[in-house]
Amino acid sequence: MTTTTTPARADRPAPAPVRPRGGANKTKSGRRRSWMPLWLLLPSAVILIPLFGYPLYQLGLLSFLEFGQPQASAGEVAEFVGFDNYSTLLGDDQFWDVLSQTVIFAAACVVATLAVGAALAVLLTRVGKWPRLLLLFAALGAWAAPAMTGSTVWMFLFDTNLGLVNEVLGMQGHNWFYEKWSAFALVGVVVVWHSFPFVMISLYAGIESIPVSVLEAARLDGASTWTTFRHVMLPILRPILTIVVIQSIIWDFKVFTQIYVMTGGGGIAGQNLVLNVYAYQKAFASSDYSLGAAIGVLMTLILLVVTVFYIRALRRSGEEL
């Protein structure tokens, strides 16, 4: 659905008949066309430029300056240091540790979210009304709730002395957050708990939208369940799947709250840091704003790459972008 017809400029009404497509373009006169001037978009610009553009500029700027406590509060002049912050960062072993565990953690969360979401979506199509409603209700509660409260309640469930899990397992005194990957796993559970509903409900709606007649036809043609899934359902679901996957990647890569809350700001000796929390700690706990900004810039670049894939997927599914 691309509209590549010559766009009409507000001041010079284009001849009406050239436009081939639908109602939105139909205009009876040039006067009508100019009724809605561009100023309807102005409020968006007024909001987005100062609140998105300017912070982005500041982020980039600070990452090239020497900007710490003296510059932030005592008003000392910030010195331009070129790529020093970046070379400090890239030369720091901790950064590479944090980067690699961010990627591993996010990847594991994405895979788990998709697996749980997809499995439950299929389950939803196979069960009766009451289990379905209950499952949808449970998903809703997990989806809407703040990441903050989700984190605290799971922390409590796994609490060393008071937690229900340790009580049931007879493991009182076991600290789940002491070991690095056990802590990551627990945080991952909460991330998945918060994000599987989106995958589940989207895929469920997608499966439900496949006409029964199509599946029936496949069955009559002698297709096995697997063939039906592979050659009939999957092609239909592909656009939803792509979008769900990329959205999950973007969300899980940016996890902040669950890590910050559950591991107390990055775990014992920072063992559970992910890029977001790492940037926060550098900038706001150590007052090294320029290093925090440099991490922010790197994250923005990584997100940009993912976003490009997202936009390509959207375009392929017929979005006009």
Partner: peptide, 29 residues
């Protein structure tokens, strides 16, 4: 269907993708 319509929708979408967390230092400043 105005000129830059796609760009506008795209830009809006990008703001969504980035979310404030990566821009925190810039916003604070």
């Amino acid at each position: 269907r105005f000129r830059g319509r796609g760009v506008f929708l795209l830009l809006v979408l990008v703001t969504q993708m980035f979310q404030p967390t990566s821009l925190l230092v810039g916003l604070y400043r």
